[in-house]
Design a protein around this nucleic acid. Structure first.
Lengths: 216, 216
DNA sequence: GAATTAATTGAACGTTCGTTTTATTATTTG
DNA sequence: CAAATAATAAAACGAACGTTCAATTAATTC
């Protein structure tokens, strides 16, 4: 056998990516063999090498696109002119929405870093740093203005990101809590954690953010 | 060749455990081969099977002992009679101290769960639940008494644990912050996050806890 | 000091791994 | 409709995997 009827490179590549994210998230990168991946797609292992030169290239591509997507999502969601509390609320909402929506690729991007070569690891970590710096800047601004009481900006940023990203470990859509309930709770926990002064309940920040979005 | 001079079963087994924790933390369970492990210990791969019948048995043993150690540490550190804020402070301090001290085995126990058989996974998760229930109980008590303002006990417990355990991702001993500085900061973040009423700075909780420890 | 037990080696087993090569067929282009 | 190209299958490569087995030597027991 050779080329199959109806075969299409673009569709196959997309199917490979999707299957790879799911399989790596479930089995881990090392435990996902190219043969299992091929079987999931409905193809022979050799066919995968038309789209990704090596297994590591495939992993790296998935991770890079995940990180790019995260940064793009934040760039689209960030309020350009706003007080620190509003910016922080936007960051939290975007972060949680993105990570719940892309649970599997988040899992891959966070757990399989050790399987990357040094250079590629550096690239991914650089993107991660760019994204995290945004949160540190918000916390710093808020602390300088006096809206937040944060002892250590870097430590607080790491703590918040770990807390928020951790949502993918236990959250399952369609169970006890809805995405918006989870987001609202995390938002109020965040605001208390950073000692946000404007303590006007959760809706305050959401409302302000909505107003800002209209204002742009 | 056969038995080597000075060989000792107990010492070899201990060396295997230690090397396994380090290697699995660094390479991942799947990527750590029995041959690599044996080489690290300075022994042939076949010798490992005197101590652990399978690779998975080795992993499970490491995880079980980690979880047992965590629960024992908490049982030793918990204040028997104390207000919720003091109990929460003890929980946070114990959790962070334990996880920083056992970074590698924490990594293994959290990241390699998917390599366990169903039954063994259940056993580990059961132990984890026991430990997490302790935190939920503290949060519930604090909320009932009115010392904490917590919207959702279960969600808050998960958020706190993710936040605290995340310390092992970025913390490196001997860098910018000391363990006690990190612990103090996490403690005050936790207290703010749960809306603890008695807002008498970080030292308040530490002092109370010390007093309790003496009282026992 | 002989018999027993403890600890380990070295070789081998069958499987699976990532990857390459070659042949073959479907589709598109001219 | 022929030529070119795109997409795949089938088979094979050497290497590494977890694990087993028999042989061998060190330490202990009687």
């Amino acid at each position: 056998m050779a080329r199959t009827t109806g075969s299409d490179g673009e569709k196959t590549e997309a199917a490979v990516r999707e299957a790879a994210v799911n399989l790596i998230a479930r089995l881990g990168y090392e435990a996902m063999s190219m043969r299992k991946l091929a079987a999931e797609v409905g193809v022979q292992a050799a066919a995968l090498y038309r789209y990704f030169p090596t297994k590591e290239d495939l992993l790296f591509t998935l991770m890079r696109e995940h990180m790019e997507g995260l940064i793009e999502a934040w760039n689209a969601a960030r309020p350009v002119v706003a007080d620190p509390a509003t910016r922080l609320a936007a960051y939290v909402e975007n972060h949680i929405a993105f990570h719940i929506e892309r649970r599997h690729s988040t899992h891959v991007s966070n757990m399989e870093l050790r399987s990357l070569s040094h250079d590629r690891l550096t690239q991914i970590l650089r993107m991660r740093t760019i994204y995290e710096k945004e949160l540190r800047a918000i916390l710093r601004d808020g602390a300088e203005v006096g809206d937040f009481s944060v002892e250590d900006t870097g430590l607080t940023a790491m703590a918040l990101i770990q807390m928020m990203t951790g949502v993918i470990v236990w959250f399952r859509p369609g169970e006890r809590l809805s995405i918006s309930e989870v987001t609202a709770t995390y938002l109020s926990m965040t605001m208390r954690l950073v000692g946000a002064k404007a303590h006007g309940a959760t809706t305050t920040y959401s409302a302000r953010r909505a107003k800002d979005a209209v204002a742009l």
